[in-house]
């Protein structure tokens, strides 16, 4: 693949988006399709319930309550764990028109970190919020 065709590919926003999605998994500061760092996105309408202190890194419960902006509905959700070896934990694509959405899941955390949830709405808007947790370690060093 020569340089000029690579440039053409990158100019296509859809292609750039999917390449970024793949590369994004390796970055600790995830980028959106518009190359905005997640921290710059508004957190409005994205409410997370995540334990401040996690019992175990093996199953940390996450609840994401999403409220779409007026006139729009939720299209997709991404759950990102920046400190995990594979940061993109979950990606949901919705085929409905739900304006409020509650996702519940359990995640495996490699280390104490903040989980990021990015919501994309039908009007193209993106919102993101994060919640920190500290993984408490057990004393029993059983390696079973």
């Amino acid at each position: 693949m020569n340089t000029s065709s690579t440039q053409l590919h990158l100019q296509d926003p859809k292609r750039r988006h999917s390449l970024l999605m793949a590369a994004g998994a390796w970055l600790s500061s995830q980028a959106t399709a518009k190359d905005t760092p997640l921290s710059a996105l508004s957190a409005e309408g994205v409410e997370l319930v995540f334990p401040r202190l996690a019992d175990t890194g093996n199953a940390v419960p996450l609840q994401a309550n999403i409220r779409a902006p007026q006139g729009a509905h939720l299209k997709s959700l991404r759950v990102i764990l920046p400190e995990n070896p594979n940061p993109l934990a979950l990606q949901l694509k919705l085929h409905g028109d739900m304006q409020s959405y509650q996702l519940n899941t359990r995640l495996r955390l490699y280390a104490s970190q903040s989980v990021w949830v990015v919501a994309t709405f039908s009007n193209g808007l993106e919102r993101a919020n994060s919640a920190p947790t500290v993984i408490t370690s057990t004393a029993c060093l059983d390696d079973s």
Binding site: D55, T56, N58, A59, R108, D142, S144
Partner: peptide, 15 residues
């Protein structure tokens, strides 16, 4: 949770 699975008492005692 640390096993991410079920185990019997035999497994737990060995642990």
């Amino acid at each position: 949770m640390s096993w991410q699975g079920m185990g019997s008492i035999d497994r737990r005692l060995r642990a």
